[in-house]
Computed example of a mutant assay.
Amino acid sequence: MTVIYHLTDTATWAAAQAAGEYTKSTRERTLAEEGYIHASLPDQVRGVAARYYADVEDLLLLVIETDHLDAEVRLERAGDGVFPHIYGPIPLTAVTQVLEVPADRSNLPE
């Protein structure tokens, strides 16, 4: 089992629960638009939160077990690192935890 992470907001997560799967790639872009869903390794989460989600007050961290994904996960170069990309929707059963992220981001992996 490998665990990867995805940051989102409460409205997007609620929509995924209603739909039965998660299909948001990143802020303002869907899986259909981007071609994959952005994810992070544990040591990348804080940097992604600071860079792309600093203004999001209702931030959530999805903990994803890759063994429960039907889609391929590829480690690919993006920006200043190599990040996991999920090439398909995330079934809700692959999300093993949903953590509310406080404003100080104190509960994010390091």
Rank of each mutant, 00 (worst) to 15 (best):
L7Q: 02
T26L: 01
A18V: 08
D43L: 12
I86G: 01
L59A: 06
Y22E: 03
D70V: 09
L92F: 12
G81V: 11
S106A: 12
E34V: 00
S106W: 07
A50P: 01
R51H: 14
A54Y: 12
H85R: 13
L7F: 08
S106K: 08
V63S: 12
T96E: 05
D104C: 09
G35P: 02
D104V: 15
L69A: 01
S106N: 07
V45K: 01
Q97T: 12
L92Q: 10
L31F: 05
L69T: 03
A49Y: 06
A16K: 04
I86S: 00
D58Q: 09
D67Y: 04
L99E: 11
T23G: 07
D43N: 15
D67G: 02
T12P: 02
P89G: 07
L31I: 00
D70E: 12
A54M: 03
T66V: 12
E110Q: 15
Q17H: 11
A94Y: 07
A103N: 14
V56F: 05
E110W: 08
T30G: 02
R105F: 14
A11E: 13
H6V: 07
P84H: 13
A14Q: 15
P42V: 13
D55M: 07
L60G: 02
F83E: 13
A39I: 04
R27E: 03
M1C: 08
G79A: 06
D67T: 06
K24I: 03
I90V: 15
K24C: 01
H6P: 05
D9Q: 02
V63I: 09
V73F: 11
D70C: 10
W13E: 04
P102D: 04
G79K: 06
D80G: 11
G79Q: 10
D80Q: 07
G35S: 00
P89W: 10
Y87Q: 08
P84M: 12
Y36T: 00
I90R: 01
E57N: 13
E100P: 03
D9M: 02
E28K: 05
Y52L: 14
V45Y: 05
T23C: 05
A14K: 15
A18S: 12
V56L: 00
A39M: 02
P91W: 14
D9F: 06
L75R: 13
P42F: 15
G47C: 13
T93W: 03
A16S: 11
A50F: 03
T66L: 06
L61S: 07
H68T: 00
T96L: 07
A16N: 06
K24R: 15
G81K: 08
H38D: 01
L75W: 05
D9T: 03
E57I: 03
R105T: 09
R46M: 13
T10R: 14
L60F: 05
V3T: 14
S25V: 01
G81F: 12
V98F: 12
H85E: 02
D80I: 05
Y5F: 15
